[in-house]
Computed example of a mutant assay.
Amino acid sequence: MTYIIIHALAPIFVIMLLGFYAGKAKMVDNINVALLNVFVMDFALPAALFSATVKTPWLGIVQQSPLIVVLVLSMWVGWFAIYFMATWLFHKSPQDAAVLTLTVALPNYAALGLPILGSVLGEGPSTSLSVAVSIACGSVLLTPFCLLILEREKALAAGNGQQSGIGMLPILMWRSVTKPIVWGPLLGVVLSGLGIGMPEIVLAAIKPLGLAATAAALFLTGVILSARKLSINGAVIVGSITKLLIQPLIAWGIVLAMGLHGQVAITAILMIALSAGFFGVVFGNRFGAQSPDAEAVLLITSLLCILSLPLFITLTSGM
């Protein structure tokens, strides 16, 4: 099992290392990465998420509702706990806290979901559906929290802070929803719910963008990391422990409270037990909000999940 996990993680580290090398060697500008950011955040990832959700049958999404409940509650609890900790305990700025929180709360469904789940439960339509639903949950029901905070701080920095926080909320929500990274998967869910299928020619046309999404995001993350000096502090340690141990245990508690068992219980816990995702780092860079803590958590959890994932795979084997 450890070999399978290492095999799944290998592409992540190789692609990030290539981006890191390209940035350090000045093959690409590791300070001004706006062009790469636009490609990843406005084209590649939205195309991948739209394709994943629009091809997911609505009945399949409804049947996955117990999984959705566990994933969303686990991510929301992790989000609010880490954000409170980052701002009140470690005195991080709202932007830094938002990036760190999204990095911790949103597992790396996109890169690790299918390899890990497929190795445990077997590859098949149900496994692919579970991963697609997981990605949709994170994209539609978690990432807007981070976008709202980043948009709010951007507005305040631009001198548009004369309105109250509540007064700004509709504007901020609209700005978040109009981001391709949010409306892409949301549009796919809506079309799936309405029973509207996309022409095959459309899906074929955007397929290359979707295939490039994860690789481009990981390469961009490596480029961003090449311009930083990583350090370990209290926020990084607490964030890493939360991601690898506490958040999966929260998911386990929700599973037990709901009386779930079998494949859906195993899927929910293992999806949450994945390492930190790269969305937070990429989002932050798009808004000029760098978080060294988030970058450190991303690397540490990606390494240590080689130990934590086998633990949860073993613990859930009898469910």
Rank of each mutant, 00 (worst) to 15 (best):
G122N: 07
A110T: 15
I68T: 07
A86K: 11
G113M: 13
A110E: 07
V99G: 02
A105S: 15
L141W: 10
V133D: 02
L141K: 02
T56P: 00
L141E: 04
P125G: 04
L142W: 03
F80M: 01
V54D: 09
C146V: 04
V69H: 04
A52Q: 03
T87R: 15
S119L: 08
P144N: 03
T87A: 06
F80Q: 07
F90W: 11
G113A: 08
A86D: 03
P144W: 06
V70I: 09
H91V: 03
T101P: 13
F50G: 07
L59Y: 00
Q64W: 00
G124L: 08
F50Q: 10
F145C: 05
T143N: 07
S51C: 01
G113I: 14
F84Q: 10
A110C: 14
G124I: 08
V54T: 12
S74C: 10
V62I: 14
Y109E: 11
A86I: 02
T87S: 08
S119E: 12
S65W: 14
G122M: 13
L117A: 11
V77S: 09
L141N: 02
Q64E: 11
A136E: 10
W88H: 12
M75W: 08
W88Q: 15
A48H: 09
V70S: 07
L142M: 15
V120G: 03
L117I: 10
T53L: 14
V99H: 04
G78M: 04
Q95R: 15
I116F: 07
S74N: 05
S128N: 13
F90Q: 00
Y109F: 15
F145K: 02
M75V: 07
K55Y: 02
L147D: 00
T127H: 01
M85I: 05
W88E: 11
L147I: 01
P66Q: 05
T53I: 00
A86L: 01
V99T: 04
P115Y: 12
Y109S: 14
S51M: 09
V120N: 02
L106A: 14
V70L: 02
A136G: 13
A136Q: 06
V70T: 06
P107I: 07
K92H: 01
T127M: 08
V133W: 11
M85N: 02
C137L: 08
L121N: 09
G124M: 08
F90V: 01
A52E: 00
L59N: 13
P125N: 05
L89D: 06
L147P: 00
Y109P: 14
V99D: 01
G118S: 06
K92N: 00
V62R: 13
Q64P: 00
T53K: 01
P125K: 01
F80H: 10
A52G: 01
A136L: 08
A98Q: 05
V77K: 00
F145M: 09
V77I: 14
V104I: 12
N108A: 13
F84D: 06
Y109W: 15
G113T: 10
I116K: 05
T143R: 03
Q63G: 14
G60N: 01
L114F: 10
L141T: 04
P66S: 11
A97G: 05
L142K: 08
L148G: 03
L141I: 05
L67K: 01
G113Q: 10
T56Q: 06
W58E: 00
V140Q: 09
P66C: 05
V131D: 04
M75P: 13
L73C: 12
C137I: 15
